[in-house]
Design a protein around this nucleic acid. Structure first.
Lengths: 111, 111
DNA sequence: CTGCAATATCGTTAATCGACGATAACCGAT
DNA sequence: ATCGGTTATCGTCGATTAACGATATTGCAG
């Protein structure tokens, strides 16, 4: 692959032979960014960050979305690892997983 | 909105009245992260960054994807502003828009 | 155990994505 | 003017997303 010779006149100078079709970090970064690749989910994350701890169903009050829709977004965020939930009596406390957020920041910063 | 009184026993402590249902940065961050919320697009960005300048159609050689698919991903990346293209004779040179990348990093770092 | 409030899940629908092949448009060289 | 190589666009198809309402599920209070 990668056309070992010829074919570069003025463009494309470096010509390294990196064979990374799917580096592991690409998958991981895509997964994490995908979690916040939606305005509602960004808002949820920002909301969770603005409070020190969880916000439970208050998220529903803050967003112009149905409860079930918010629940789905929370599920996606949980699956990505960015958000965690903890049962607290009748409600559920959501909070940011700082470790995952840190990794997201790291991976983006390394770009 | 936001239940001005009562209803917080042990959970949810801060109780601020932030009315940000759709902060502008949420939209922007979602747009930028959405651009790299796919392994192939992350790979393309990493590829463009690994070379100093553009890679043109070499991206197709590096990725296990059809040319038309790569072209679509490039279109998405261009629309997000993260990538720019410049016609260079018969080919097209793609390169990272450092300004947009910087903003992405900034928005993520501010989370 | 019965009701109530908070969440999750299910089922549906419309819209979008991701991938591809085929084709068109573009540019330089012959 | 035509050819060859490069890239974009079109049309299609299956899979996934986003949103909702309706319905379970859960845990506490009475």
């Amino acid at each position: 692959m990668q056309t070992p010779s010829a074919k570069n006149k003025k463009c494309c100078g470096t010509e390294k032979t990196l064979p990374l079709p799917e580096s592991a970090s690409a998958e991981q970064l895509a997964k994490l960014t995908w979690a916040i690749a939606h305005p509602a989910r960004v808002s949820i994350v920002q909301l969770l960050l603005s409070r020190t701890s969880c916000v439970c169903g208050e998220i529903v009050s803050e967003l112009p979305l149905a409860q079930s829709t918010v629940s789905q977004h929370l599920k996606i965020l949980k699956e990505s690892g960015l958000v965690q939930g903890e049962i607290d009596g009748p409600r559920i406390c959501y909070y940011i997983n700082q470790k995952a957020l840190k990794q997201l920041k790291k991976l983006v910063a390394e770009l």
